[in-house]
Structures are given as C-alpha cells and as structure tokens.
Write a protein that binds this DNA or RNA. Sequence first.
DNA 1: AACTAATATGGAATCGATTCCATAAAAATA
DNA 2: TATTTTTATGGAATCGATTCCATATTAGTT
Lengths: 329, 329
Amino acid sequence: MATIKEIASMANVSRTTVSRVLNNSGYVSEEVRKRIIKVIEETGYVPSQQAKSLRTKKTKVIGVILPTIKTETSGRLVAGMDDELSEAGYQILLANTNHEKQKEIEFLQLLKVRQVDGIILAATNVNDLLVEKIKQLDIPFVAIGQEISDVSNILYDDYQAAKDITSLFINKGHQQIGFIGVDESDLAVGMWRKKGFFDQMEEKGLSVEEAWVEQGVFNIQSGYEAMSRIIQNSNQTPTAVFAVTDRLAIGAIRWLNEHSYAIPSDMAIAGVGASELSNYITPPLTTVDYENEKAGKEAAKLILRQIEKNNKVIEKITLNYRLLERDSV
Amino acid sequence: MATIKEIASMANVSRTTVSRVLNNSGYVSEEVRKRIIKVIEETGYVPSQQAKSLRTKKTKVIGVILPTIKTETSGRLVAGMDDELSEAGYQILLANTNHEKQKEIEFLQLLKVRQVDGIILAATNVNDLLVEKIKQLDIPFVAIGQEISDVSNILYDDYQAAKDITSLFINKGHQQIGFIGVDESDLAVGMWRKKGFFDQMEEKGLSVEEAWVEQGVFNIQSGYEAMSRIIQNSNQTPTAVFAVTDRLAIGAIRWLNEHSYAIPSDMAIAGVGASELSNYITPPLTTVDYENEKAGKEAAKLILRQIEKNNKVIEKITLNYRLLERDSV
DNA sequence: AACTAATATGGAATCGATTCCATAAAAATA
DNA sequence: TATTTTTATGGAATCGATTCCATATTAGTT
C-alpha cells in the first residue's frame, strides 16, 4: 500500500498539496491537481483510514450493541441501520452481548476506545449503572426499544399495542383471556405489554384468573411449556391467550395443536413481532408488526443527525405499529 | 480522554515506560510499575486503538461481507463468528452487499483501507474479477459457501446433500421427482445442488420431465409460483419435488395447501437449510441442516489461525450436514 | 578492582494522514 | 507604480500510541 508521501514525491509536490486534492480543500492549480489525480489513479492509492481518524477524530464507524444477532428482529434492525448508514459512508461495528447484562457496559467502553462516531444500543434491560455509563459517554447515542431519559430513543408503543390486541380479543367476544409474558426487568416487553393487557381488561371490567397468567423466556419451547401450565392449572380454561412475543405464541399453538385444540374456535392466540414464521404456521398468527427495519433506519437517521449537528440533540420517536389480523383469533 | 502523555507526566515517567507497562514488555522496576498502574486505574485511562493500530498495523477487527443480513442464515453465521472472534478480542465490521455483485469488490477494497486484520466473505456468485481481487488482497481471507482456489474455504457439501435428499425420495418409492432451483451463477446453491439431484436420478435410471424443473429466487413467493408452474405445465405431475432452499419449499407447500394437495401423500417436498420456520409449518419440512453457526465458528477459527501464523495457510474445510427427516416426505 | 551483563529509564523517530503557518507569485485594486 | 488580495505551495507540528537506540545504574563475574 502506497502512502501519501510516496504519491507526493511521484507527483513532485508536497504531502500537503496531495491532501488538498484528496479533501478538495484549499487552493490547488488545475495543472497540479490533474497531475496528482493521475498518480493516484495509476497507483490505486487510497488514504489510510487509520491515520486519517487519528488526526480527524472521525472513524466513519457506528457501534451497534445487540442482545443477540441470531434472531430475525436483530437482522432486520441491522439491515435497516445499514441501509441508511452505508448511504452516508458509515459502517457498522458489531457488539453482541449474548444477553449478558454486564457486557453492555463493557462494549460501551470498548466502542468508545475504538473511537466510533456513535453508538446504537438495542436495549433490553436498563439498569441504573448502564444509564449512568451512557450519560457520561459523551458521544452520539441512540437507544432502541427502551426509554432512557436524556438520550435519544426509538420506541415501540408496547403499551398501546398490547391494549389493541386485548381489545381485539374482547371484540371477538372473549371474556376469559390468558397471558404469557416475560420477566418484567425487560421494561418494554415484560412490563409495558403486561400493563397494557391488564389495563385493557380492567377497563372492560374483565377479571383475569391467576392461573391464566404465565411467564416464559424468548423462545418457542418456553411458550409450549407455558401453555401447558395454563391448561393444567386453570379451573376454567381461558378462551384466548395473548403471548408477548411470536415465539411464545408459536410454542403455545404447537402445544394446542398437539392436544387437539382447534384454533381459534377452542382457543384464540395472538403474539407480537410479525416474524416471518408467524405467517406460515397453521393457522397464521395474529400479531403486531413493529417494522424493525424501519426502526433501524430511524435510529440510524437519528445518530447521523446527532453527528452532523455535533451536539446532543435529544429526540424521542415512537414508531407506529400495524396490527396484523390473521386466522388465529 | 486522557493520553499516554498525560499518564506519563502524572506518574513522573516517560511515555516509553508507560507503554512498557501497558504491553508488559521490557524492563520496568516494580516500584514504577505500581505507580503507573495506580495512575491508570485512577484516571480510567485506556489507550487509543486508533493510534495503536497506526503504529502496529493491527486493528483487532475482522471484516465480514454478507449478501444480506436479514436472513436467519446470515444471523447464525455471524453469531458463530462472533462467538470465536470476541473470545480472541476481535470485533466484526459488517459489510452488507444487498446481493449486489460489484459491492463485494468495493467492500474488499474498503475493508482493506480500514486495515481490518482479516476478511470473511459469505460468497454467492464468484466471478473472475472477484477472484482476482481476492488474490491480490494479501490479507487473511476465508470464503464461506463457495469454492475459490488458492484461498481458505469453509464449504458445505451441496452435491452430496442434494444426492441424499433425492435418494430419500427414491427410497420412499417416488419415481417422478420435480426440482425447484435457482440461477446457476450461484455455484453452490444453483449448480451443485442441481447436479446432485440430476446425477442421483440418472444413477437410479429415473428420467426427469422438462416441465418438472423450475427456477426461482431466494424467497417464499418464488417457490409458490414455481410450484404453480410445475403443476400447470406437466403432462404427468411429479409425486415429489426437491426445492433447493427452505423458502422455496415453503412457498411450494403453501401453493399445494391452497390447492388441496395432501402432503406428503399427494406430493412430497423437501428443502435445504433447516430454517426455524421449516420445523413449524404444516407438515414439518424435511430438510438439510448445514449448521451455519458452526460454519461461522470454523471460518473465524481459520481466520484467526491465518492471522496468528502470519502467513497464507490455505485450508479447505467441508462441513458435515444433517438430513432432517420430517413429515413432508 | 576491573569488566561484562542485566536492569531501568528516557529521547526521538515512526506510523500516515491533516492542518496551521509562512512565503511567494499572480491578480486585483488604489 | 505601489499596495492589497487572492491563489498556490511547502515546511513542520500534530494526533497517540510503539519501538529503536542511547545511557545510566546496579548486579554479577573473573
């Protein structure tokens, strides 16, 4: 790889002048400019990002912290970001926490050391330590999926979406509705979706039997088991169950299918997430589409705006969602 | 952010000595070492990767070029890589081509400029220009999924897997077997899987009617349409169809379901890829599990070995696959 | 005691760019 | 014609680390 010094001497000018051509800045005569460009083209020279970043303090890299990279949701999120970012000449440096909380903090530090121009965090559980670290970070930052005060956020309306799903059940005549949730330390998925469900039930004067409420984790097997527990432990089984993620819902459906419950006549089911899977199981699952790709795009736009404005423009964006009514309700 | 210079003056030593402590190299007296470590801890100083890389020519970053980041396959691949790489202190810099061929070449260049320590390419179509660029790259390199001479490869045994699936059909008594493929410029998926199918049919003395063979692209809709064409155009409809990807197979199944074909009795279907989806559709799809996460891990290991050995150790690894016999055959 | 080897530290060059500052020539203005 | 202004270029400092080399002290060996 050639260096600017070599290009300079080949074109019989100083490094300064080459740099001017490279960055289109300052005065360079047409004649010299042409000579330099010719040399650059002949040698295929490209300036080292390395050296450039050291001097300019800009890396054209955005750090993205994810709880996992295996899921569709993550994939779509990243795809959306990349769409916007690559357009603007940025690349994504991945940081995968594998759901380990303390890694979020480690990566925050690591990415800063790597001098990324901004950080996007797909947040799961927000604890005080994390929030504090974020605040003392002092580089452009956007959190997706969880509200964090004083920083930019892309938010899903988990509360309203849960209410809508619950309404849908009620409108279809269901009165006894069960719920499969996740741990409430995940504020968005665990807490807000649960609250939406219970608030809506209460508003409509419907009560929820304790045995109808179960908790799982983020996979299909867990939904399968939760459904089994609901049926086993209920005095009177519910006629519908709201699962807070598609995977939980799909697990539930699988259990119901295996035990000859007809869906939706014996039991209605809905999930959240609009995974590709949800549309191809039998019956197709009623769910909420959060449009993750769009979320990724918006997050990227926010980060770029922060970088450009060179200061802390704090923006909070709550995205729309689409209720996809399919055959499981 | 503090710099090594500041740390040095705070500890009343030279930058050189601080660097020695940082890198555990050369002679430093116990007393001075302690003093420096104390200052480092108090200030929370971390050396700039930027400056370090400029001098050492190592970035601890691996560039990963993918045709898309939206799919499960990509997600698993990346997850596998990250597993190994983060262990060794490396991070992944993403490059998403969105299936645009010329972007593969652009990214090769871009990643090199960014001084990544190695590049992993999830290859789709290999053309001469790409191969040439790869060869003159001169940094650790691994290609996944497609054979490229003179560089390290992680390969799937597409040919044998296709033969196995075809055998399975034949053993179940099928004689008229259809095929849904993709463009053969994708050597692995398009060419080798097709060849595996036809070779196996020929070996068993079975002929394939022209109308049984259709081509699609990498999505569900495309499988749906291909299946429709096969049924419409055949004199005698096949009793089984091998689709080269799960999505194509799932599209085909969808068409068959909609037109009241019973699976597998009226028509047997198999795919390749073992997507999560494949296990939850009705009926569960017989498919080949290529264990992408493992492929990612192996690719990462290869890259690390190349970096460590500091030279072109060319290794070719063909991974095992598992034939998942489910209810669609 | 004299001399070699090991230990300990700092100065200065280096990596490859950008950018401030100085200077000189050409063009514009008084 | 004298004096600004604009245009054009290069020298040298800088970003924040690592590393080669020199030097000084201390320890070990004959």
